[in-house]
Design a protein around this nucleic acid. Structure first.
Lengths: 203, 203
DNA sequence: TTTTTGATTGACTAATTAATCAATGAATAT
DNA sequence: ATATTCATTGATTAATTAGTCAATCAAAAA
């Protein structure tokens, strides 16, 4: 009776949706929400214009789903490392290296998170998600800095500001690296972390 | 014969153009090129929709003029400080403090320069200007790091990468500060510059 | 082979936004 | 007062882009 069984249809649907999300991540990341046309996404995905509306209600909808993914994964990444064992410095280093490794090839989800955080033109719901998670991420980092200061590994300074400084710096460096992707050994994690630690000549 | 003398007309024209450029800087900075409507600019400037086309050929045109201003002034700022007297560290510190002071209230020109550098949706001519000046700015910084390393003030590392690191970090921090503008004493310039100097406990 | 179901297409419509232009307004010399 | 010139307006047109939908296609059961 059915030309395809449900499971097969589900597989097709999953694959197409994934294809559209990946294409969306790329073009939204590169061109921003307002700068991206629906036609850009479907061209990247090599699908027809109409099909995107079979899987998403609107351009806003696909962006919101991407933003949600970006924030939940970044939060989980940070939480896992921060709640890990090891000294605060070790955890901060592991986190930093992990983030750089993760954004090495394509930082599209990073870019989506960043623009969702900062742009006034993203869908309202995405901005709301961003606000929620950004605060949580900062709290995790703040706690890490607090511990590191208590244990004497980190210099004393307002932990919240240190968390802000850390994420600012990360944003800046990752952003730059997406432009100069051919550079090897950029950035040097140890060098960056010197901002937060006590003086010591080289590692 | 003439209802207004040329000089008067010129004054009016100058004032209006300035008004539109300031409004444009604000909304382009906040919303990006693609996210900005011509109606956003004229609303901000409190002028009629039609008038913007009396002073600029197109939305692209006004953006290009803003981008040019952003890049020429940033280049001049950097050049002046870098070619100043003082040790490399002193000059780097002066530059950094100057940039933070300059972008304290509204960093609209900073934001325009940044997005012109990184977005794929800005007018082609603006992107060309950006490419030219960004390279020049980096060269100035690279030279400063080279000198600082020669004189022993700065740690040894590829001067180009240090210049990139410096500008990345600046971008990240200024960006963050535009969101958290209520923060006092953020960032601490001395703390940032520790990335580039030899170990020493506090200043 | 035929039928059925749901994915897929792309021409079409609707909505948004850039750009135009005929009409108006404000200031000043005559 | 009137005439002149140029800045200014906003309704209108043009161009772009989001979203729709009737028709088509592909795969498998009957």
């Amino acid at each position: 009776m059915s030309p395809r069984i449900d499971e097969q249809n589900q597989q097709i649907r999953d694959a197409r949706k994934q294809q559209l999300l990946e294409a969306g991540a790329k073009v939204f990341g590169e061109r921003g929400y307002a700068g991206t046309k629906v036609s850009d996404i479907v061209r990247e995905a090599q699908l027809s214009h109409g099909l995107i509306y079979h899987y998403f209600a609107s351009k806003e909808d696909i962006y919101i789903e991407l933003a949600r993914t970006a924030f939940t994964t970044s939060y989980e990444t940070i939480r896992q490392v921060v709640e890990n064992g090891g000294s605060p410095y070790e955890r901060l280093k592991e986190l930093t290296e992990g983030i750089f490794a993760h954004t090495a090839g394509s930082g599209y989800f990073f870019l989506i998170a960043l623009q969702t955080n900062t742009s006034k033109t993203v869908p309202e719901e995405a901005a709301a998600i961003s606000k929620e998670y950004s605060g949580q991420n900062l709290q995790l980092l703040e706690q890490l800095f607090r511990e590191g200061q208590k244990q004497g590994e980190f210099i004393h300074a307002d932990p919240f500001k240190q968390a802000l400084m850390y994420s600012s710096m990360l944003n800046g460096v990752i952003f730059t690296r997406l432009t100069y992707s051919e550079l090897e050994d950029f950035p040097q994690v140890d060098q960056i972390l010197r901002i937060f630690t006590h003086a010591r000549e080289e590692e």
